[in-house]
C-alpha cells in the first residue's frame, strides 16, 4: 500500500518528564522511581529537555489527537501513570506503519460482505485507514477539557476505530518497549510484571499466595542482544 505522506519526516515532541521520571507504587506496595530507561534507538533528546520522536505513520497533528485520546482511555491519575507517560502513541504509530497497519496478515480478498457478529470484522478498511478516518472525526479534540473529551469518545465507543484505539492503548501500555510503548517499563511496574524472565524454576512452587515482584526488565535486557518487533520487518 502506498502512503506518500509516510515519506515526510514528522516528529512528536514530548517533554522528558512526561516519559518516566514519576513516582509510582507497584502491587507489592514498594515505591519505585522511574528513569527514562529503555528508549528506542531512534528517539533523540534535544537540549531543551524535550524528546523529538520521529513518526513513522502519523502526522504530528494526528499523533497529538491520538495521544490525547489514549490518555483518556488510560489516564494518569491517583492510581499511577497513564498512556502519555508510557508513550502509547509511539507504539500505535509503529504498529500502523508496519505490516499490521496495512493488513499484511489479514485475509483481504473480496467480496466484502456484511455478516453476523460471530464472523467478526469483515470490512475492507485497514487499521491505517480506520485510524486516518477516525482521527479526522476528532477535530479540535486536543482543545477540549477532559470531561468533554470523554463525551466525544463515549459517542464513538462502539465504533471500530474506538475499539482498536482501546485495544492498542492497553497493548502500548503493557507490551515490550521494543514496540515503542511501555516507556521506562512504566506499564510493567504498574502491574508488577517482571518482564520475560528466562526461568521461574525455583520460584514456581514458592511464594504461594504472595506477590512475587521484581523491578522489571525488557526482552533486550533479558537476552542481552538487540531485539526488534515484527513491525520493523522489511517487506
Amino acid at each position: 500500500m502506498k502512503t506518500p505522506r509516510m515519506k515526510r519526516r514528522e516528529f512528536l515532541t514530548l517533554p522528558v518528564e512526561s516519559i518516566g521520571g514519576v513516582l509510582l507504587y507497584t502491587l507489592a506496595g514498594e515505591p519505585v522511581r522511574l528513569a527514562g530507561q529503555d528508549r528506542g534507538q531512534d528517539k533523540g533528546q534535544t537540549k531543551s529537555g524535550e524528546i523529538r520522536v520521529p513518526l513513522r505513520f502519523f502526522t504530528a497533528a494526528e499523533a497529538r489527537v491520538v495521544q490525547a485520546a489514549c490518555e483518556r482511555i488510560f489516564p494518569k491519575d491517583a492510581n499511577g501513570p497513564g498512556a502519555t507517560e508510557a508513550a502509547v502513541v509511539i507504539y500505535i504509530d509503529h504498529q500502523l506503519a508496519g505490516p499490521y497497519g496495512s493488513d499484511k496478515y489479514r485475509y483481504t480478498k473480496p467480496p466484502f460482505v456484511e455478516s453476523v457478529p460471530e464472523h467478526g470484522y469483515q470490512g475492507k478498511q485497514t487499521p491505517r485507514e480506520i485510524y486516518r478516518e477516525g482521527v479526522k472525526k476528532l477535530a479540535n479534540f486536543t482543545d477540549l477539557p477532559a470531561e468533554q473529551q470523554d463525551q466525544r469518545l463515549r459517542a464513538i465507543e462502539t465504533s471500530m476505530f474506538f475499539r482498536l484505539l482501546r485495544q492498542h492503548t492497553i497493548e502500548g501500555m503493557f507490551s515490550d518497549p521494543m514496540h515503542g510503548g511501555n516507556a521506562g517499563l512504566i506499564g510493567w511496574q504498574l502491574i508488577g510484571y517482571p518482564g520475560p524472565l528466562m526461568s521461574y524454576r525455583d520460584e514456581i512452587d514458592k511464594a504461594h499466595g504472595q506477590p512475587w515482584r521484581r523491578k522489571p526488565v525488557s526482552l533486550a535486557q533479558v537476552t542481552g542482544r538487540p531485539v526488534s518487533g515484527w513491525e520493523d520487518e522489511k517487506g
Binding site: 496478515y105 507490551s175 521494543m178 514496540h179 520475560p196 533479558v222 537476552t223 531485539v227 515484527w230
Partner: peptide, 21 residues
C-alpha cells in the same frame, strides 16, 4: 525462539501461525 518471548507479536499477532492473507 530465544528472542521470541514477546506477547504482542507471538500471542496477539500470531507470528507463528498460518498467514491468513
Amino acid at each position: 525462539y530465544a528472542t521470541g518471548m514477546d506477547e504482542l507479536d507471538y500471542s496477539l499477532r500470531f507470528r507463528m501461525m498460518q498467514n491468513l492473507a
